[in-house]
Design a protein around this nucleic acid. Structure first.
Lengths: 244, 244
DNA sequence: CAATAGAAAATTTTCGAAAGAAATCGAATC
DNA sequence: GATTCGATTTCTTTCGAAAATTTTCTATTG
């Protein structure tokens, strides 16, 4: 019943979170940056954004400020904002930092994880498998919606692994690094890249899960390998700007 | 020559960085939160801040948004901002996360560090020692200026240790966690706390430095101990809100 | 022809007022 | 006496215009 035409509320009430236009701006900008709609390195002119999202300066600037803290947006003093550029170095740094954070979070989860933690992993793995299978059957015909669903399941699985680490900071950092690396991952999700060794991602996930459930340090190793493998494939199959 | 009366420029030009009022708001708010001038948990009323800093809503909100990403400020949708509360749990989480980040950064620095890296550490250690000695001579008479100088030297030393890690993310995170933990540290810097074992901080620093220079994994251990010891002292000597 | 200064345009940044939402208070009701 | 509803007040949030700054363009000079 919310969001009727002529609704002049700041945001629709039925929706889960938003609450403010600043939040809306943040969400939409982030989505558009991560998905590549707003190209890496491109300047973000306030007037253009105002047009594009139908918002005014204040909420946009607030959102950009936040995105700057999260390394998705770059800005210089009186020269405005731009989409943070992509580069090999940044991707490697993001990947290795993610491995550092998630390894620790996984270790702690394995140390203290209870039945609910285990159940969460199994459930997330199952949902991910179903989605992956569906995708495989429709191979070639993966639209943006499927891709997004897949990515969400993927996120949920990795999140479930570290969910019991009891550190709000590690979880936040993992989320942030997930988003950052997604920028590099998404362009590669369009399909298997020619010239790269066939990869059984499902098997990798299974391996990580099994090791995690038997509380084996192997889980940490497998997880790191999993992320590094992805990073290697991306590095090989991306056309990088200039020589960076 | 900059900053004459009647100057209507956004900021004085001679100064190093500021550039915008948003930046000024960020710096001043951060200082006042870390130093405790703005008490933990207290609501941050926009009107009051406007008064206090002589700025208007926009730059203040932008700064608050940024500080929120850095966990110094808390906010709920349409209910405004407040200073992030202090708690045992948060301090422990910040400390352990800092150890995780700086351990990795120190390892990498030790692996790849060159002559300049070593020289930087020695220089920072020396400057820190001089300041510490001076402080010791004036014992009892440490004013806010001295305390700030000491803290800056301390920061520089720990920064020098990890300076060569080659990861912008690790360095940023270390900086952020340094600021976060400073909130807990500063109230304790007023003087040695009664009932705690006498502590030779200078010796601890020396130990870390020596181990780092001979590229020994001991450095990582000593560093972690150094931080945990500080955290323990703070935990013991702080009056924590309610039971949290 | 390159280089430079100065004016015009484009853009970011800031402000103060207006709009919107939550908290407060008080009267009427059960 | 406690409670709910509604009006009032307080506060946050948003807007659009004004101020400040950078960038672009052009004419001028060496």
């Amino acid at each position: 019943m919310a969001g009727v035409a002529g609704d002049r509320r700041i945001v629709s009430e039925g929706a889960g979170e938003p609450g403010t236009l600043s939040e809306v701006a943040y969400q939409r900008l982030r989505t558009d940056i991560v998905s590549g709609v707003l190209g890496a390195g491109k300047p973000l002119r306030l007037e253009a954004l105002k047009q594009r999202y139908g918002l005014s300066f204040s909420p946009l600037r607030e959102a950009l400020m936040r995105l700057q803290s999260e390394r998705l947006v770059f800005s210089t003093a009186l020269r405005g904002f731009s989409v943070a550029p992509l580069s090999r170095e940044e991707m490697k740094d993001a990947t290795e930092t993610r491995i550092l954070i998630e390894s620790e979070a996984l270790r702690r989860s394995m140390r203290d994880g209870d039945d609910d933690w285990e159940a969460g992993i199994v459930a997330a793995f199952h949902a991910l498998s179903l989605q992956a299978e569906r995708q495989l059957r429709l191979s070639g015909e993966v639209d943006a919606v499927d891709m997004h669903a897949m990515d969400e399941r993927h996120y949920q699985f990795h999140r479930a692994l570290i969910a019991h680490c009891r550190s709000p900071r590690l979880l936040d950092l993992a989320d942030q690094l997930y988003v950052e690396t997604q920028r590099y991952r998404l362009p590669c999700l369009v399909g298997p890249v020619a010239g790269t060794p066939a990869r059984d991602v499902a098997a990798e996930h299974q391996q990580i899960m099994d090791a995690a459930l038997r509380r084996s340090e192997d889980a940490v190793r497998y997880l790191a390998e999993h992320y590094r493998r992805t990073a290697d494939i991306i590095e090989a199959s991306t056309v990088w700007p200039s020589s960076a």
